[in-house]
Amino acid sequence: MTHRYGQTAPMPDSIRHFMRSGKDPARAFPCTHCGAGAHQPCRIPSRGVALAGVHEQRINTRAQTVACCPTCQVTPTVPCHANGRALEGGAVHRARHIEAKDEAA
């Protein structure tokens, strides 16, 4: 639980990041592109400027972690593949992104 002014918040930390309004649920995961920590904004690596959105790699990490892929029939945490080879750069199928969005709702 989060402590504020000596009292605990009514919401457990395990569901707090799903309830943050206006924030992409992918922010609950660290960014593999810029190195931003969980719940921190993505940054432009060369300048350190915070971005309003999140990097595609972070979105892919979330989709791979929480959703099954209907296209290649893999379970969560298993990388998507095409013809027996993992997709380049940790990419995931578009259908897996849709499944991850449905899971967050």
Rank of each mutant, 00 (worst) to 15 (best):
C68W: 07
H55T: 10
V49H: 00
V66I: 14
P70E: 09
H97F: 12
S21M: 13
K101G: 11
A50C: 07
G22E: 05
C34F: 02
G37F: 01
S46Q: 11
P25C: 04
H33V: 12
V54C: 11
P12Q: 02
H33K: 14
R94Y: 10
R96I: 00
C80N: 03
I98L: 15
H97R: 14
P10R: 14
H3W: 10
Q57P: 02
N60S: 13
H3C: 07
C31D: 03
A63S: 14
P76I: 04
D102L: 13
A26M: 03
N83I: 02
P12R: 01
P79K: 01
Q73S: 15
Q64L: 08
A50S: 12
A82Q: 13
M11W: 08
E56G: 11
G48F: 04
V92D: 01
A63M: 05
R47E: 04
A9H: 13
P79L: 00
R16A: 04
H93Y: 03
T8F: 11
T75W: 01
R4S: 11
V78K: 13
G84E: 09
T77Q: 13
T75C: 05
G35M: 07
A86K: 14
N83P: 00
T32I: 09
H3G: 03
G37N: 09
C72A: 12
A9P: 02
R43K: 13
H55F: 03
A95Q: 12
R85D: 04
T61C: 07
I59Y: 03
V78F: 00
V66C: 04
H39K: 13
A95F: 00
Q7S: 14
H55I: 12
P12K: 01
T32C: 12
D13V: 01
T32Y: 08
G6N: 04
H55R: 05
T8S: 07
G22H: 05
D13P: 05
D24P: 12
T77L: 11
